[in-house]
Design a protein around this nucleic acid. Structure first.
Lengths: 164, 164
DNA sequence: CCGATGTAGTTTATTTATGTAATTTCCATT
DNA sequence: AATGGAAATTACATAAATAAACTACATCGG
């Protein structure tokens, strides 16, 4: 599974020759991001599997864990996790069945649903966080503190241009 | 759909408070990459839809376009595009049905299958490349030439640590 | 050389996940 | 009260991951 990036880069070079308008550098960046995303995603899934979670479920739990009020609506979650609302219904169903979150109707707007972490949910989070911290550390291990700050800055700059 | 990154970052800050071992900077980087990937992916799909393609199909076509010999086996493609081999069968079936690639058995190893772009496939690529070039330009528009080189360097460094 | 065993390349079948579109319920505004 | 729009869900369609099956090459001990 050790798919190196070098062959991809050679193919981009060939593409540039065949189609001179093709912007090599932007293409490399986009491909690198796809590439890294896939690896990061698969790694995370591997760590989470023993806890009975997949990556999107983990994302939802962490979004709730990071919300001071402890309450989120499905729309909030969809926005925060970048999932379609239909997915949120499915995913929160799964999390409810596992007893990790709790669902109740909102009082002030009966269209809304309010989701909260259960004690069991918080406990599960605390139990997998050490491993997640380790994973995050490994995933960025090659980068020094300076590199990380630089990378954050550049990624944010790129994102800035995307959300226009 | 303009999902800003600021709320995510606030949630990470809260997470750090609740769980001090949580490494803020690596988490920000990983989330940024996920975030950017999703946007880039969706944008590409939108551009490709009028051409009757989805993102993975586009990837396969471009991998073949960038291969000097013009020939690739399904395994080559799986490796190059980061797709599972079962997906390659499905995707290349679709591309064959659309008449964009051609499939034939290999002569020197009858286990292998050889895939080539058809003239129609090459023509389709040439027809969407201008729009793709535009998209790539927009996606990296905020980044200067220097930024792009830096970002490439840092992403490669990060990837380096991942494939261990 | 020959057959047994292992392994590579591809496909098929099954399950799981995701996207899309339409439905339902409710709030806000007039 | 009538219309329009927001929030969540449902039902349906599509895509993707997993695991098993199948065919062909490789190689090793007899």
């Amino acid at each position: 599974m050790n798919s190196s990036f070098a062959p991809t880069e050679r193919r981009l070079a060939v593409t540039c020759e065949r189609h001179p308008a093709f912007p090599r550098e932007p293409a490399v960046l986009v491909r690198l991001i796809k590439h890294i995303y896939k690896v990061v995603h698969d790694d995370a899934n591997a760590v989470l599997k023993p806890f009975g979670l997949n990556h999107p479920e983990y994302n939802l739990l962490m979004m709730m864990y990071g919300t001071p009020s402890g309450e989120m609506t499905p729309s909030d979650l969809a926005d925060a996790a970048g999932e379609k609302s239909a997915n949120i219904t499915r995913l929160t169903n799964q999390l409810c069945e596992k007893g990790l979150i709790h669902r109740k109707g909102s009082n002030d707007d009966r269209r809304k649903v309010v989701l909260t972490l259960t004690p069991g949910g918080e406990a599960l989070i605390e139990s997998f966080l050490p491993e997640i911290c380790g994973l995050l550390g490994r995933q960025t291990g090659k980068l020094g503190a300076d590199d990380q700050r630089q990378l954050e800055r550049l990624l944010k700059k790129m994102l800035d241009g995307l959300t226009d």
